[in-house]
Simulated assay, not measured.
Amino acid sequence: MIRSLLSLTATALLLSACAQTPLRGTGDLGVVVERATGSLQIIESDTRTALARVEGLGDLSHASVVFSRDQRYAYVFGRDGGLSKVDLLTAHIDRRIIQGGNSIGGAISQDGKLIAVSNYEPGGVKVFDAQTLAQVADIPATPLPDGKKRSRVVGLVDAPGQRFVFSLFDTGEIWTADFSQGHTPRIERFTAIGQQPYDALITPDGRYYMAGLFGEDGMAQLDLWHPEHGVKRVLGQYGRGEARLPVYKMPHLEGWALADQQAFVPAVGHHQVLVMDASNWQQRDAIAVAGQPVFVTARPDGRQLWVNFAYPDNDRVQVIDTQTHAIVADLRPGPAVLHMEFTARGDQLWLSARDGAEVQVWDPYRLERLGSLPALSPSGIFFSSRAHKPGY
């Protein structure tokens, strides 16, 4: 009888706990970076609602986010060198460290066990255990001529084979770091790849790593299937002899698009989206747009591109048909549109209007606004479905 009463009591307590904290999956969750307040909003796309706010994440003025394989944890890379592990289910900071002085992004390894952070200060890449955030590797970048500092690191992505790939802005290099044999990486360096690689992308199959160049025209491409062939130049003649416009905001190559055997990338210092043939990486077209593009984001089915712009055209978003290269919509969502993110199946497009203090949700097929959520100076929007996309 006592055993039965104890069993009934335990069952009642369990049912009570379940009633107070309903079970929730993580596949429909995401985060909105609130850059001015160092906070994240945890959002749910199905209900178009904000579930919670997590504060105390430091300087998020250029923050980026990756997710654990189970989509429960968001790893937040802050500009102040902070690396934070946020639990999406409990809405609290699981762990947080200051790993550098000025960081510019990060990546999670193919097996989900390592977190890499690229740093301006100190120049290089640091790698951490994804569970504990204990440091497991330090990869210093090439020293600068003054001997006091090292090159800034940009364009860090994960690649197949338990590798990270990144670019060195000041010294014009691309490095690969292979962690397949343990925590002591095998480093391969490619030098003289072009002046000032400022950002990079990796193709969805993980084969090609491409770094945009700010100091000269073109992009540097590394074939990760055949690294022995070295780095080659693509779009090498683009813009030669033309006067560039002042660059108000650097385009983000991780916001590039690959659709219908074409690669669409934002041009630096031009009001254009460049189109390359994805089979040979030769330029096919240049689409005139309203301003200097920042993100060129493809709808998951590949039929549309959504493009936002640097100041003074950052209140606009243009939609491009990937087959005809025609602009099919010219939208004015609000002041300072900073970022756009599709849900995994493409039924929604979320965008942040920083100076409008809101995040908007759009139907990308009907080109209709579905609703909005208030947010504090919102910038980046990241859905947990990124956990299963290489290079994100």
Score class of each variant (00 low, 15 high):
residue 228 E to K: 15
residue 159 A to E: 05
residue 168 L to G: 15
residue 170 D to Q: 07
residue 130 A to H: 13
residue 139 I to L: 14
residue 244 R to P: 04
residue 173 E to N: 08
residue 145 P to C: 14
residue 182 G to D: 07
residue 147 G to W: 15
residue 143 P to K: 02
residue 164 F to P: 00
residue 205 D to A: 07
residue 175 W to H: 09
residue 235 L to I: 01
residue 249 K to Q: 15
residue 114 L to I: 02
residue 144 L to E: 03
residue 200 A to R: 00
residue 143 P to N: 12
residue 242 E to S: 09
residue 134 A to R: 14
residue 132 T to S: 12
residue 222 L to N: 01
residue 196 Q to L: 10
residue 125 V to A: 07
residue 250 M to W: 03
residue 117 V to E: 14
residue 128 F to L: 13
residue 209 Y to D: 12
residue 155 G to F: 08
residue 233 R to P: 11
residue 162 Q to D: 14
residue 197 P to H: 06
residue 248 Y to C: 05
residue 119 N to H: 15
residue 174 I to G: 02
residue 169 F to Y: 15
residue 250 M to K: 07
residue 238 Y to C: 06
residue 184 T to H: 14
residue 139 I to P: 00
residue 122 P to D: 13
residue 250 M to S: 02
residue 141 A to S: 11
residue 205 D to M: 06
residue 126 K to R: 13
residue 116 A to R: 08
residue 134 A to I: 08
residue 139 I to G: 02
residue 176 T to G: 11
residue 157 V to N: 03
residue 158 D to P: 01
residue 193 I to R: 00
residue 132 T to N: 09
residue 180 S to K: 02
residue 240 R to C: 09
residue 254 E to W: 10
residue 169 F to R: 06
residue 152 R to S: 09
residue 212 G to A: 07
residue 224 L to D: 03
residue 208 Y to R: 11
residue 169 F to D: 11
residue 245 L to I: 13
residue 247 V to P: 04
residue 145 P to K: 13
residue 175 W to G: 05
residue 204 P to V: 12
residue 115 I to T: 11
residue 208 Y to L: 05
residue 202 I to D: 07
residue 215 G to L: 11
residue 142 T to G: 02
residue 244 R to V: 14
residue 139 I to T: 06
residue 123 G to K: 11
residue 184 T to M: 07
residue 173 E to H: 07
residue 244 R to S: 11
residue 122 P to M: 15
residue 165 V to R: 07
residue 149 K to C: 02
residue 184 T to D: 13
residue 220 A to P: 00
residue 137 A to D: 06
residue 157 V to W: 01
residue 153 V to N: 05
residue 230 G to T: 05
residue 186 R to P: 00
residue 199 D to Y: 00
residue 163 R to H: 11
residue 114 L to N: 12
residue 151 S to C: 03
residue 141 A to T: 06
residue 215 G to H: 12
residue 181 Q to G: 00
residue 191 T to P: 06
residue 117 V to L: 15
residue 194 G to L: 01
residue 201 L to F: 03
residue 155 G to A: 14
